[in-house]
Design a protein around this nucleic acid. Structure first.
Length: 416
DNA sequence: TCTGGGGTCCTAGGACCC
DNA sequence: TCTGGGGTCCTAGGACCC
């Protein structure tokens, strides 16, 4: 049996841990730039605030019901996620972290699944303050469905188990096809056209029909819903194959020099991730765009294939600068830019090249020194010159909470 | 006036090779 | 007049996830 454990309204729950006055109140967390709603408390959901809705569209509703609003604080959420995952790894023999707020647990051989799951729920809550729900089932896709029910009905006490054919069928009949893990908007539309409304309807279609309409991915979902596990453990979960760092700007950027600074700042973040997972890159993709909701939106990009693998910021920054010079057009208002590091390889697999003009030993020592400085004094302490002094990406964050768990200056203070 | 960010996997079709 | 067949690799784009 598998369990899908999922933190309830995760980002909101993180904010509530450090601000208990938010309990019972409607709360929303916004995306970067305070653009869209990306997390909602149950109270906010009940007000009809939809997931992913642009914030300005619900501003009135928010004011009317005094909804608490937070800018996204990924430093805090990432750290809270680490805490939850650490607790879990101590409780189960095997697990796969699936996302910032979800993990699959392997429960093979466990007798009393309900009490075991309840114990996990209570332990995580007590240790981290984060409420979680658990769905247990023979496959991961069914686990997702069970989890949905665990959240939806309070009677389940955050644990729902699908362990019989009757329960499986009942659960499938009560699940809309669009709510199934792996069925997105397009496939939902297509399936509804063929009168497939529930997950159960879907399982009644033939395997070959599903394959022909939705390729192997749909077929996999079909198998899983029918109780046959086939979503395997992903060996690559920890190591990313590409690293994308992009931002929308609160204020548009017009000058080339400022755009260079922004792109290099993004490259710096990307290289930070690259180095953290101990990989090197051999391809750099830079893109810029104007407001993508405009009818005449302008988009441009450039990929540079390097001759040698690198994880050196100065080197990456140089290529980014080059790429940008080729794609920058005067007189436009840029709203978004990004840097993608492609073709990654683990550092121990890199072969030295006889014709490499750069002294890699020296460069590695320099990069390591930079890592140490950044680690000790923060990202702002040292940077590439072209990034500009004190330059900050123009991101709007008007409702930011503190980094309670990762910055000493921002920890909670207790008055005695 | 406002509209996120970071990933993965699969397929079709073109280029190229023998 | 007639114009093979099979394989690999790469890329763009679609679809989906949280």
């Amino acid at each position: 049996m598998y369990a899908l454990i999922d933190c309830n309204n995760f980002f909101v729950s993180c904010e509530r841990v450090f601000n208990p006055a938010l309990n019972g109140r409607p709360v929303v967390v916004l995306s970067n730039n305070d653009g869209c709603v990306i997390a909602r408390s149950n109270e906010a959901k009940q007000l009809g605030i939809a997931m992913g809705v642009p914030f300005y569209q619900v501003k009135q509703l928010v004011e009317k019901h005094q909804v608490a609003v937070y800018s996204t604080n990924f430093t805090l959420y990432g750290d809270m996620s680490d805490r939850v995952m650490t607790i879990l790894s101590g409780l189960v023999p095997e697990m796969e972290v699936y996302s910032v707020d979800e993990a699959f647990l392997h429960l093979h051989g466990i007798e009393d699944l309900y009490n075991y799951s309840r114990h996990i729920v209570k332990t995580v809550l007590k240790s981290t303050g984060i409420p979680v729900s658990i769905g247990v089932a023979p496959t991961k896709t069914l686990g997702k469905i069970a989890n949905h029910f665990a959240k939806k009905y309070t009677g389940y006490k955050n644990v729902c188990i699908i362990d019989s054919e009757e329960k499986r069928i009942k659960a499938l009949q009560q699940t809309e096809i669009g709510d199934v893990w792996g069925i997105g908007r397009n496939h939902r539309k297509m399936l509804e056209y063929y009168s497939v409304k529930t997950a159960f309807d879907f399982t009644q279609k033939s395997r070959s029909w599903v394959r022909s309409k939705m390729t192997v991915i749909g077929e996999r979902t079909w198998m899983e819903l029918n109780g046959i596990p086939c979503v395997e453990k992903d060996d690559l979960t920890t190591e990313k194959r590409q690293i994308c760092t992009s931002r929308s700007f609160g204020q548009p950027i017009t000058s080339q020099s400022e755009l260079v600074e922004a792109v290099v700042a993004l490259a710096s973040l990307g290289v930070g991730k690259l180095r953290k997972q101990k990989t090197l890159t051999k391809g750099i993709y830079v893109f810029v765009q104007t407001n993508r909701f405009d009818a005449d939106a302008y988009k441009s990009s450039k990929e540079i294939v390097l001759s040698f693998y690198t994880s050196d910021l100065a080197e990456v920054a140089t290529y980014c600068h080059k790429a940008l010079n080729e794609i920058y057009k005067e007189g436009l208002e840029y709203k978004r830019a990004g840097v993608v590091l492609l073709d990654l390889i683990r550092e121990e697999y890199v072969q030295r090249d006889l014709f490499d003009p750069i002294d890699r030993e020296k460069q590695t020592r320099l990069s390591k020194a930079l890592d140490m400085i950044t680690h000790k004094y923060g990202r702002e302490a040292i940077k590439v010159a072209v990034e500009g002094e004190g330059y900050k990406l123009k991101i709007k964050q008007e409702h930011l909470s503190r980094r309670y768990t990762t910055n000493l200056k921002e920890v909670i203070k207790i008055k005695i």
